[in-house]
Simulated assay, not measured.
Amino acid sequence: MGKPNSEAGAPRHVAIIMDGNGRWATLRGRPRLFGHQEGARRVREIVEACPECGVEYLTIFAFSTENWKRTQTEVAGLMTLFRRYITKEARNLRAENVRVRFIGDRLRLDKKLRSLMDELEELTAHCTGVNLTIALNYGGRDEVARATQRLAQDVADGKLCPSDVNEETLPRYLDTCVLPDPDLVIRTSGEARISNFLLWQSAYSEYEFIETLWPDFSAKEFAELTSNFGTRERRFGAVPA
């Protein structure tokens, strides 16, 4: 977390809502899945840009709990894309010293995909470079609800006293319990909403809503946004000195 009344410096943790894949493909007369494929390629470029930009943690919103409402064809295609991405990129990510984690409710995902996710987390568990977190079947409200269930069970089991439940207790039950809160949240495609993404964690995040569609988002634009972050005054409720 940045210091009040001072320039923020580089954002330690950047979270990205990767929006605009379908529109990008439609503008080119191609199927929506073509846009998702191009978007997946963009992820590698941004991960590789993180060290030079001073970013230690990168969290990307790959598939939300609401995305199941899309057509069966698109959902099935996305699940196939996720499996292919993990299989193809696993060795590269480890070779580049990238630590990969997944957040979200895995129960609705198919067994093969869950197995690949587990394998990739284990494969990169020792890596000490960029921390890449992939939000897959993730929703902020769903995450808080699941965390609350676990917290309530600990209270029922006598492991936690109700009077000890506060805003510092709940984060220990969130999917992101081992991650710092995001300093900067970027949403591509011109939409200015947060879409149920990291609701608890982004309480004091800075936001950038940009017009660029995700498949056109470049390492150069990423570097500009992270550099601009350093000019912001982050007061966290305090007043300027």
Rank of each mutant, 00 (worst) to 15 (best):
D157L: 12
E56P: 04
R99D: 05
R141D: 05
E89D: 10
E52S: 13
A90M: 14
A156H: 02
E221A: 12
E121R: 12
W68H: 09
T80Y: 14
N196R: 11
I134W: 11
D105W: 04
A15V: 09
E143G: 06
V43H: 06
D157W: 06
T73V: 15
G139N: 09
V55R: 08
T71E: 10
L107T: 12
E211P: 03
V47S: 01
D183E: 14
E45Y: 04
V100L: 00
R172K: 15
E233L: 15
P162Y: 03
R28G: 06
F217Y: 09
R172W: 03
S163F: 02
N67P: 00
M117G: 14
D157G: 09
E206W: 12
L78M: 05
H126T: 15
R172Q: 14
A10G: 01
V185T: 08
A90N: 06
G237H: 11
A95P: 05
G20V: 05
I60Q: 09
L109C: 09
E211G: 05
E143W: 02
T128S: 13
K3Y: 13
E143A: 06
P171E: 08
P180D: 04
L123R: 13
V100Q: 02
V47N: 02
L225T: 07
Y57F: 15
R234A: 07
A135P: 02
M18P: 03
T176N: 06
P215V: 04
G158S: 03
F82A: 13
N131H: 15
